[in-house]
Each structure stands twice: as structure tokens, then as C-alpha cells.
Design a protein around this nucleic acid. Structure first.
Lengths: 165, 165
DNA sequence: GCCTACTTGTTGAGAGTTCAACAAGTACAC
DNA sequence: GTGTACTTGTTGAACTCTCAACAAGTAGGC
């Protein structure tokens, strides 16, 4: 198609440090949560989203959108969270296809118990390592990257079977 | 233990944007590689590490160290890469426990075929979104985060059974 | 030599994610 | 109403990763 615009030496270096730093960071956060609270990071974030929603309740697809997760992934995850007694499903009265996920009191308690350790890890491993200027810079950089990430790609699986028959 | 130092509003915002941006970015890179080259991102990086090693050969544990991967994970991955014909195992003559992973010609060709698409995605989704100053800042920030990430944690599983008997 | 401690790499089971396929319901034209 | 297209959420299989357990080999004391 077009000849490749390879990375410069410096870009390569930044890219590798960036990946190593971020993968290492997320890895440690995930380990901390799994070790101390027996939940994967993705499940923690589902609980957070629910805890902030009105009535601690969200439609499955809204929750998937918020978390940038596929419907399939969320469905499996909520099934596990339901087994743990942290989330309940409730049907939607106005749309019989739909279903709500509701954070239970036990789920909220589990989240409250997990939060301090998680926040401490984020502080120690991220914010304590950066100057106030760098924190601002990271915010700007993140926003710039976000502008190019199509969040829809994760959530939906466009079925194009009807388009080119 | 100690009372929690919660995140400030601004820190929270940066944290969420950061996670969303990074998870979205890695997700898209992984999808691009899987879609266009039928390999997970982690496998791509294994091939890269091997391609840069003398004789395209590395001890399993060195490779695990380079990639910040556990020995178990690497062993499974190399098994898959061997099935694909991209990597071969060779035994180590001086240490009969050890084994080498060697990138095959087919593996090198697969890497060459995958690289342009991957680099284009990294460019488009990351470097094209950032100013030269931001790229420098990201490099510094990554180094700072890296300083607090203990890369050993991933690789080894310290067996402390003998310590406190 | 022998014995204990450690290292290397593999294995199998369990857990989370992805993908494609699916049932059930909704929306809207006709 | 009927029919077609789309949406919602779930399911099962395949795949990757993690964890614990393991066999085999090395290192160093004695």
C-alpha cells in the first residue's frame, strides 16, 4: 500500500520503555488485587462502575460501554460476580431483551474492602513516582491518545453478512 | 495499617484517562496483529526479541527475563510458536536443564510480514497523536514508572518454603 | 563420593477473554 | 397485521495466562 514509516531510534526507545512501564504497572496492580482481594482488576472496575451508578444499577450494555468491554466478556464476568454474590441480575421491564446488573450490599462491602489496598498501590507505583508537572503531562497525553482510540471497536461486533450478498 | 491516602479529583481523572487510553491502545494493537498476522501481541514480541539476539537464539530464561514473562507462560508460548514453525527448541550443551529458543527462517519471515502493519498502527494510534515535547515527556514518565516496577516479580516465583520452618 | 539447596524448564488444571453463532425481542416500513 | 433488519444478551469452544507441582540437572558443603 504505502512504504512503512519506521520508528526513529528515539521513538523506538520511548515505545519500549512505555510498554514495559505500563505492562509492568498493570501487572502489579492486577496481582495486588488478586492476592489481597481475590478479584481480577477487570472485575474490580465493574464493581466501581456499578457503585457509582444510580441505584447501583446499570444495563448490561451500558456497563459494557463504560468499561470498554465486549458484551460477551461482560456476560461471563457478571456470571462469575453473581456466583460470588457481589452482583445480581434483574430483568428490564420496558425491554424484555435487556437485563440490569445490580451491585449487592455484599458486593459493595467487597469493593470497600478492596479499595484502600488498590489505591495505595496506584499511589506508590504511579503518582509517587511522578512530579506534579508530569502528572499533568500524563493527563494531556492520555487525552490525546484517547482521541484516536475507537472505543466502539471493543464493544460491538458489526455483522456485515447482509451487506455484500 | 495506615489510613488511606485517597486520590485527589485531578489524580482520579488522570488515572482514569490513563487507563482508558492505555487499555484502548494495547487492545487495538493486539487486534490489529491478531487480525492481520494471526499472532497475539505477546508472541510478536517474543519473535522480536529472538530476531535481535545473536544467532537469533536465546536461553528460555533469558527470553523470559527480556519479555517480563514467567517461565511457565513462555514455555506455553514457545510450544505454540513451535507448532507454527516459527521457533525451534535446541538443547543447551553446557547445562542439560537448559534449552534454547531459535527463530526459524519462517519465523523471521512472519515477523517481517507483520512488522509494517504493526508499526503503522503504533504510529497512527500513538506517535501521530503526540507533539515532539509530549513524546519526550512520555519517555521520562515511563522511565520514572519503570523505576518502581520490580520486573523480577513476574518472572520468578520465590519458593520460601524453606525459610520459616 | 554424598547430601542438601537451588535453578531450569515443563506440565496440567483452572480462570478470563475472544470469537462466532444463537435465541429472543424491538423498530419500522409496508 | 406481516416481514425484514437491527439490537440485546447469552452460550460454548478455542485460546492465553496463572498458579502450583514436578522432574531433572547444577552447585557447593561436607
Amino acid at each position: 500500500m504505502s512504504d512503512t514509516r519506521w520508528l526513529t531510534e528515539r521513538e523506538q526507545e520511548v515505545w519500549r520503555d512505555f510498554m514495559a512501564a505500563f505492562l509492568g504497572l498493570t501487572d502489579q496492580l492486577a496481582r495486588q488485587l488478586q492476592r489481597d482481594s481475590a478479584m481480577p482488576h477487570a472485575y474490580y472496575e465493574i464493581l466501581v462502575s456499578l457503585s457509582e451508578a444510580p441505584d447501583r444499577t446499570l444495563r448490561m450494555s451500558e456497563l459494557a460501554g463504560l468499561r470498554g468491554s465486549s458484551r460477551s466478556r461482560l456476560s461471563h464476568a457478571v456470571a462469575r460476580l453473581e456466583e460470588a454474590g457481589w452482583v445480581m441480575r434483574r430483568e428490564c421491564p420496558t425491554d424484555k431483551r435487556g437485563s440490569f446488573a445490580v451491585l449487592t450490599d455484599r458486593g459493595f462491602a467487597a469493593l470497600e474492602a478492596a479499595a484502600p489496598g488498590h489505591v495505595a498501590e496506584v499511589r506508590e507505583k504511579l503518582f509517587d513516582k511522578l512530579t506534579p508537572e508530569q502528572i499533568e503531562q500524563l493527563g494531556e497525553i492520555s487525552k490525546a491518545i484517547l482521541s484516536g482510540v475507537d472505543t466502539s471497536a471493543t464493544t460491538c461486533c458489526p455483522d456485515l453478512t447482509g451487506g455484500d450478498r
